[in-house]
Amino acid sequence: MTPRFLLEISAFIAVIAALALLPLFASPYGITLMIGMLGYVALAIGWALFSGPTRYVSLATVAFFGIGAYTCAVFSEVLAYPLLLLVAGLIGLGVALVVGLATLRLAGVYFVIFTFGLAELIRQLVTWYEVNITGTLGRYIFLPVTPEGIYWQLLALTAAAFAMSWAISRSRLGLALKVIGEDEVVASHSGIDIARVKLGLFALSAVIMTLVGAIQAPRWTYVEPSIAFNPTVSFLTLIMALLGGANRLMGPILGAVPLFLLFEWLSANFPNHYSIILGLIFITIVFVLPNGVLDFIEKGWARRLPVAKPAEVHK
């Protein structure tokens, strides 16, 4: 263990501990804000885990998020709370494996369209089921979870997701992902089972997203398909991860925090033009910062300090 590694671990633990103490000082509104923010940070980390290295742009985020929320709503009266999360995670995993097996052969824009369609399909299925079988569209969720409880759970999930992506980036699996992102032919000819690696990562990323939905659901008290499966969630997650840089450990966090605050402010101040502004921001990020801010800053740095870079890169 190098000193640098110990330093990073200590910093990580200190940040999580400080964040865990936050509810003791924050106002109820502050906690609500933090819950929303942590939710998006976790979603963005989960999204980047799969889509960053593989470059598969997924719009299925809300499919899994919604599955988590709905599982929580449907089973809230029959299952004890921690078990509820486990069941939600397992359902998310099952759906991800089936969907992954069917779609990971699709490339490029076909995958984007399919994942978008998937979220809509699941929403329609749930709506149909609720209307025709249950007879009601919405559901109430009454669970004995406090906002602080939700916050701490999301913090734990976010920390776990971050630690996982850190561990993966240093592992053999991380190298496999880099190679797959760079050249699938080389990857397969080197002995990497591409289908398995992609499926595994897709499933892991989906479980994180499902858990975010399941943990946040009690905050809403009332859910219906159009709330739980709102496609904006998928788009926001995508923009946040892209803004920070989906191929970097800190990228999703650095993208999610400012954008979440910006969107909160926009929806409070410009409720009618929110969607248009969102679209404009999206287009700007894709065109101006296709590799994320972190990459942009590093490149700018390298331009100003042309001599320093090669020495630094040399690990």
Binding site: R172, L175, K178, V179, A187, G191, I192
Partner: peptide, 20 residues
């Protein structure tokens, strides 16, 4: 078919890590 953004050593490590 090089893996251009990886280092030369990493390119070779790929075959070691996932090969026999």
């Amino acid at each position: 078919r090089a893996l251009p953004s990886l280092s030369v050593t990493e390119n070779v490590i790929v075959a070691l890590a996932f090969g026999r």
